[in-house]
Computed example of a mutant assay.
Amino acid sequence: MNVIAVDDEELALRDLTRSLEKVWPGCELHGFSSSKRALDHAEGHPVDVALIDIRMPGMDGLELAKRLKDAQPGAHIIFVTSYEEYAIDAFAVHATGYLLKPVDLNDLKRELTFVYEQSRRTSPGSTSPSRVRVQTFNGFDIFVDGKPLAFKRSKTKELLALLIDRRGARVTTREACAVLWEDAPYSPSQSSYFRSLVTDLRSTLASVDAGEIVVKQRDSLAIDPSLIDCDVYHFLEGDPIAINSYKGTYLPSYSWAEFSLSRIEPSRK
């Protein structure tokens, strides 16, 4: 996301940009103390979100917002001001949000999360939401058309969790068995039981017309990440909604998931 912050008061601009860096560390951020410089930038660079003070000398924030919208109709405008009385004027120029100074981090996070979600839904390259949603933070569950999917065997559900964790990488029978039964040596009986889990997984998914999310080849399985809406995938892509939802717990029921935490929390490496 390309973000600009505009405020003629240097201290206020510095505070706002610092808050933005905390709440949305992955954004491309530019700060301007002049409406003219902000507009010059917007005429040559993409702007997804503009956080604008209203009372500024010369071109005020309301005029800047109108001209930004002319230059980039898809830009989201969030006014950041000390004055409540401008709210009606602000929304007359189709502002997305209105924050009062001093800006509260939670309020800023809420506004940016809303903007991000709106942009993701309406961007030209966006696709319709997946029928299959997977939750890996604070527990593991899979939902199809909004309904939780039930499994006959807990190991079948764990196998699916393992495939989700691998993010499309293929897992062989021997590799999967080594993870699912970490204390037991590989054996023909274990291999046979694993094949029954695969059959159970595929039939469970097929029962809700979601069988295509698992790709099976001779001696390996993989998930198709493009067909699921998964919180950890969005997290790793820098999605602020997913980042804000992560509370330090990933696939907590499975001990093997501890080894994947280094991807989520680099400090654990």
Rank of each mutant, 00 (worst) to 15 (best):
V3D: 02
E9A: 11
A12C: 03
L13P: 01
L20V: 05
V23G: 00
L29G: 03
L29Y: 08
L29N: 01
H30P: 05
G31H: 14
A38V: 08
L39R: 01
H41P: 06
H45G: 10
P46R: 12
P46Q: 13
V47Q: 07
R55F: 12
M56A: 03
M59P: 02
M59E: 13
L62A: 01
E63I: 05
E63P: 00
L64A: 03
L64S: 01
A65S: 01
A65G: 01
A71I: 10
P73R: 15
P73F: 11
A75E: 00
A75Y: 05
A75K: 09
H76V: 00
I78W: 08
F79C: 04
F79H: 06
S82K: 08
Y83I: 10
E85L: 13
I88R: 09
I88C: 11
I88D: 13
D89G: 00
D89F: 07
F91Q: 12
A95F: 00
A95M: 00
T96S: 00
T96K: 05
G97P: 05
Y98D: 02
L100A: 14
L100N: 07
D104N: 09
D104Y: 15
L105W: 15
N106T: 15
D107P: 08
L108D: 01
L112F: 06
L112E: 00
L112C: 06
T113A: 02
E117M: 11
Q118R: 14
R120G: 02
T122V: 07
P124A: 12
S126Q: 09
T127N: 14
T127P: 03
T127E: 14
V132P: 00
Q135E: 06
D141E: 10
I142M: 01
F143E: 07
D145S: 09
K147T: 11
K152Q: 10
R153T: 04
K157Q: 11
L159M: 14
A161L: 08
G168A: 13
G168V: 08
A169C: 14
C177E: 13
A178H: 15
A178N: 15
V179C: 02
W181F: 15
W181L: 06
E182Y: 15
D183H: 14
P185E: 07
Y186S: 04
Q190F: 11
Q190E: 14
S196A: 09
V198R: 14
V198F: 11
L201V: 13
L201E: 10
S203L: 10
T204G: 06
T204F: 09
L205P: 03
A206K: 04
A206N: 12
S207K: 07
A210P: 04
E212N: 09
Q217K: 14
S220A: 13
P225L: 11
H234L: 05
H234C: 03
F235I: 02
L236V: 02
E237F: 06
D239S: 06
A242H: 07
Y246M: 02
K247N: 15
L251T: 04
P252G: 05
P252H: 12
S253Q: 11
S253V: 10
Y254L: 14
A257D: 04
E258G: 08
F259P: 14
F259R: 12
S260R: 14
S260K: 12
S262D: 13
R268Q: 15
